[in-house]
């Protein structure tokens, strides 16, 4: 058994991946390590290709979910941060 690289991940996908790993990947021995220039690597501790394929499918799910979130933000149109800031009385922040 050894640590195997699954994929490099950019920063924007990191949070998405954290959530995916938490739920769908909880049975896999995964870790995220920070490599050079802020790039993170998703690694899996395994000895079979089956597990590696499963980890790769998590990555694909994470990318698909990220895209969907971007679409929601785009179509949502309302800036929730403005509503929260008006509730909190925060001005001149942006």
């Amino acid at each position: 058994m050894s640590w195997n690289k699954v994929e490099s991940i950019n920063h924007a996908t990191l949070a998405e991946l954290q959530q995916i790993i938490l739920v769908l990947g909880s049975k896999l021995n995964l870790r995220i390590i920070t490599a050079d220039e802020g790039i993170c690597l998703l690694e899996l501790f395994c000895d079979s290709d089956d597990q590696l394929y499963l980890a790769e499918s998590l990555i694909h799910q994470a990318y698909a979910d990220l895209k969907l979130r971007e679409e929601i933000l785009l179509k949502g149109k309302i800036d929730i941060s403005l509503i929260i800031e008006s509730v909190l009385g925060i001005t001149n922040q942006k």
């Binding site: 959530q19 979910d65 979130r69 929601i72 949502g76």
Partner: peptide, 19 residues
Amino acid sequence: LFPFNFHRFSDEDVLAISS
């Protein structure tokens, strides 16, 4: 559509939470 987020339970199921 209002902005919202979702939490994935499986490939087929999610939990959606509004603002």
